[in-house]
Simulated scan of single mutants.
Amino acid sequence: MYDIAVIGSGPAGASAAIFAAKSGKKTLVIDNDQGVTRRAWVKNHYGVEDIKGPDLVEVGNKQAAAFGAEYVRDKAVEIAKSEEGFIIHSENGSYPAKHVILATGFLTDLAEKSGIKTAPGTEPRVKTIIQVDSSGKTNIDGIWAAGTCAGVSVHTIITAGDGAKVAINVISEMNGERYVDHDVL
C-alpha cells in the first residue's frame, strides 16, 4: 500500500512526488508519458535560464526517484474506493494508495470517471478543470488535484509550486500537524 500515489509526472506531479517521497511517505508516480511539458521549450522558469520541457520533466522525475518515489509508466484508467483508501486501476495493473494526487495536466477524464467534480476551464486550451478547495482537496476525501488540471495556470513554475503545495497539505493531513521541508546549508 502506497501512502501517496501521484498520477502524472509533469512539473506538478514530479514536484508533489519530490515532497511526498522526501517526507518519508511511500510514494508512487503513474505516468503515461503524454504530458504537455514534454513538448515545451521553457525560458521563464525561475532559476533556469533555458531548458527543453523533456529535460525539465526528466530532472524533476530523477529528483523524486532519488528520494525514493517509485515510477510506473502506465495509463491510469480508474480510481476505486477501497477499505484503506483507493485502488488505482491502470491499463497494466492495479495500485493501492491511501491518498491520490491527480496531476494530469489538460486531462480530466479520469477524474470525471471517478466521480470527481469538474468545472469549465478558464485558460486557453483548458476545457475542463477539477474542482478543488484552496488546499487541493476534491469532493472525494483522500483524492487531491494539483497543477493545470486543478485550475492552476499552465506555466511550469506555477504548476510545480502547486504540486509542492498540495503534497505538503496531504503530508500535513497524514501527519496530523503542519509539515515543513526546509534544508539548511
Rank of each mutant, 00 (worst) to 15 (best):
D3L: 05
D3I: 05
G8P: 01
S9A: 15
G10K: 05
A12E: 03
G13A: 07
A14W: 00
A17H: 07
A21Y: 03
K22P: 00
K26Q: 11
K26M: 04
I30A: 07
R38E: 10
W41K: 11
N44G: 05
E49Y: 13
I51R: 02
K52H: 10
G53K: 04
D55S: 11
V57G: 00
V57A: 15
E58F: 10
K62G: 07
K62E: 15
F67G: 03
A69P: 01
A69I: 03
V72L: 06
D74F: 05
E83G: 09
E84L: 08
S90Q: 07
G93E: 09
A97E: 09
V100A: 05
A103D: 00
T108Q: 08
D109Y: 11
E112K: 15
S114Y: 07
G115S: 05
P120W: 02
T122C: 06
T122G: 10
E123Y: 15
V126E: 08
K127A: 15
I130L: 03
S134E: 15
T138I: 06
I143W: 04
A145V: 10
A150R: 01
G151H: 03
D162V: 00
G163Y: 03
K165C: 10
A167R: 00
A167M: 05
M174Y: 01
G176F: 04
R178L: 12
R178G: 00
D181G: 15
